[in-house]
Design a protein around this nucleic acid. Sequence first.
RNA 1: UGGCCUAUGGUGUAACUGGCAACACAUCUGGUUUUGGUCCAGAAGAGUCUAGGUUCGAGCCCUAGUAGGCCAACCA
Length: 556
Amino acid sequence: MSTEKKPLNFIEQIIEEDLKNDYKISDLKFRFPPEPNGFLHIGHASSICLNFGLGEKYKAPVNLRFDDTNPIKEETVYVDSIKKDVAWLGFKWAEECYASDYFEQLYNWSVDLIKTGDAYVDSQTSEAIAEQKGTPTKPGTASPYRSRSVEENLSLFEDMKNGDTAEKAHVLRAKIDMSSPNMIMRDPVMYRCLHKAHHRTGNDWKIYPMYDWAHGESDFIESISHSFCTLEFLPHRELYNWFVERVGKPEDLKPKQREFARRNLSHTVVSKRKLAQLVEKNIVSSWDDPRMPTISGLRRRGYTPESIRNFADSIGIGKRENMIDVAHLEFCVRDDLNKKAPRVMGVLDPLKLVITNYPEDQTEWLEAENNPEDESAGSREMPFSKELYIEKEDFREEANRKFFRLKLGKEVRLKNAYIIKAEDVVKDEDGNILEVHCTYDPESKSGSGTEASKRKVKGTLHWVSIPEAVEAEVRLYDRLFSVEDPTADKDKDFIDFINPESLEVTKAYVEPSLKSAKPEDKVQFQRIGYFCVDQDSTSDHLVFNRTVTLRDNWKK
RNA sequence: UGGCCUAUGGUGUAACUGGCAACACAUCUGGUUUUGGUCCAGAAGAGUCUAGGUUCGAGCCCUAGUAGGCCAACCA
């Protein structure tokens, strides 16, 4: 495709190596296997982009597989949100699969394993089993039930399956090696008895397979060639291979598990448990609160799928501990929105500006470019009148020459309009500035081509005409945590590092063209930042979420 | 008294598998600009965890350390 040879990450190198050896390109098949017990977050986005990205690169199918082996924690609502998020990111899965679809097959294979002496029913408490497991430095000891006869195992397993035994009474274990240096290999549990209804299989099953038993076999059933997971599963690889070798025919292509490092993002947390706490403790409003690093939160915040995919691609994939600066994520949205978001004007902290030499009841409709980065975005008209709002921080009675804004006796350009000169201020008895009075140069109208319009002035301000201004609610979001890694301090709870200013709600005045803005519309309030219309927004009550500020080089 | 993984500018990844370290973000300078945005030009910043070894030559290979991470759920 592209002539430039982009360096391959280590995962791609593994695939290229396999392709050179015993794999055909048509053998390639991947999967994204979320457990439907929570919402997807930015960390998952990396995994999604890795797997589906590989699918696009090699034109290989990628399955969306729900790893639904634990009915206690899993629910259909999560299935739905996961599907929505993956689709929103712009990926198409080949098949929608469920580990639960394979329960029957898994059961039959387990019976085979019992028959070959590779599995047995243990009837001890989980405490006793844990006790016998040993420690990383001490080998485990065998269960007294380890040498049960095949017949007894078969019969007990049958009882378990039928729900004739109590939960916790028995488990099925693989018979491997109680003294393995890899603790995962010390006779891992394959099945537990759980008399719970499953979101898809209902009450059909009284036993449910454990992750290790279900995952690799699901990969095998779907002919997945490469099964990518995070680093903490590395010790599971040995078991993954052990199971997969015992299933199917020797000549079958067996899936390969390979591991990569999960991504950590600065100034936030990326763990389902911690994110759940933020919701439960009402620190954020919901899972899709725009401050949450969930896909749904980022979407509501105004992030685009392209920006997230570009982020995932640009941070690459590795095997070491990492902490990615959220500034990089912010760069990615700005980069995308700069090309896409229409420019509009809105004043967040208004200061009344009166143009003393402008006709009393006149309203002019001035042309304004929608996006200087995109010719095809066209233009719109916005009203100009005698009384305007400008940003309070854009005016000072006096300031040094580094202040490129309005000060008494000096000129400034009103974006898309005229050059004005501040003449006077009106204050209340406490000295607060209530109004700024200025004069305008009628010859300086933007785009008029006159000599006056071409004059260079120190600064350009955004503004909005008071009579036509539309009131809107603006939610100014900032980083959720005030430190890079809120989990770093072992003596403190991560909640202690919440940024108290992560949300500021304020009232703004925006230009009238925004009246028809719809949820998820994205705009750039010029000189301020990128904003996204919130789902709470209505035509009577506009609500904008700040996605990210503009990059600001002005140092005070 | 274990096994496994990892170690490259502030951050994240590269380095044609042995030929004196590159890209992006962040930072700092200039220039352009009717957004202190964008864009353009440029700068600074690592000698690749340490110590040995192999080699004409090591970030890449070997050995030993050191540091960090993972592994003892009827979770995934």
